[in-house]
Design a protein around this nucleic acid. Structure first.
Lengths: 199, 199
DNA sequence: GTGCATCATATTGGTACCAATTTTGGAAAA
DNA sequence: TTTTCCAAAATTGGTACCAATATGATGCAC
């Protein structure tokens, strides 16, 4: 696991709050890596829009602009709904069953997992769904876009009602997929993505 | 202008052919920058998928996989056609005229510019078109995606017939926009993007 | 003559160090 | 007591150097 992944995980899990200054010496002592590795990781995360770089000041955790995240969520709506057509056409019964299994695993994590486990399980569900699309670059791109908005993760799944709503939507998506109901699946996905945006 | 931009320009203009090994000492003498700057730039371009990194071997210009570029072009079709609806609704007459002016500037570059000038003029046209979309992140994303496929630039606009075809499509796009013909504009854009893929 | 092992060379990648800039704490003056 | 200025400490960012690894050539054995 690279330094960038470690930092990203700590940002997502809330160890480093948005706006926190990430001092290089702290990071290298915390993770046990050298200065160049830390700087590479910070540059990497800067390009991924997870941290921001101020010359001669340092790097701090990116504070998500609310309408910027809204715009990124709209991009995800565009891409993930556009993928639905091919997803449905490639949805064999065993594939549908695999996705349903992922939805169940997400439910498990709601009961027995940390917020990070829930995040990972949610990611796995959507990955399983999108990898039916014959365009692997789409999965890559959506994963990247997801990474840009998830620093507001603490606020998204704050309430129990919220994660249970997500779970229900996952199952509704599987059902729509099994029924090959393209418009309904698109609707659910669009709602599912836009939902965390509500305040 | 950063080192990464300089390298990227030289890659696009064909100074560094696909597959070429980019030796750090050569780069730092060529551009007059230090080793760390060169490495930062190479890491940056690696994440941008313009170069590839092989541990303990170095960095070489990315060789575009043909179906990978096809997949990325499909993503651009999805995003740029999705943007058409809002583009048309925000297309005031002066905005349309600005875009038409960009199309004319592209024509000028066909006659009097280098291939890099043509590339820039083409970029400016599409930027002018997409910045009508109220989602600025869409323009960013499309620009990034465009950067991933343009290393095959030499092959795309190799023939004069090809660039003149592009020019005609630009003007057709402006006409469709002025007529507020959404489906036609989407069709032209989709064809325009997919075209360079032909062999 | 050909294939393989070994060695020299060149390039990468990491480490230690130093300069430049910013911030913070304190002291002095209003 | 508050504000301003100065100095010291800390952090960033760049430079030079050195070790590790891969490559290519040369020599040797078969």
């Amino acid at each position: 696991m690279t330094v960038a992944d470690l930092i990203a995980r700590d940002v997502r899990s809330g160890v480093f709050a948005p706006g926190t200054w990430l001092k290089q010496i702290d990071l290298e002592s915390r993770y046990g890596y050298g200065r160049p590795d830390v700087r590479r990781a910070l540059d990497y995360l800067t390009q991924k829009r997870l941290v921001q770089h101020v010359p001669n000041r340092g790097y701090h955790v990116f504070m998500p602009d609310s309408d910027q995240t809204a715009h990124i969520l709209e991009l995800r709506v565009i891409l993930e709904t556009a993928a639905v057509d091919s997803i449905v056409s490639y949805a064999t019964p065993p594939a549908v069953e695999r996705i349903r299994e992922r939805a169940r695993q997400f439910d498990d994590m709601i009961l027995h997992g940390t917020i990070l486990d829930q995040y990972e399980a949610n990611l796995a569900f959507h990955r399983e769904l999108l990898c039916l699309c014959p365009n692997p670059e789409l999965l890559n791109l959506v994963t990247e876009l997801r990474g840009r908005t998830s620093s507001a993760l603490a606020g998204q799944w704050s309430t129990r009602a919220r994660v249970e709503q997500s779970s229900r939507e996952h199952h509704a998506m599987v059902d729509a997929l099994a029924a090959r109901d393209i418009p309904r699946l698109k609707d659910i996905i669009a709602q599912h993505i836009r939902q965390p945006q509500r305040k």
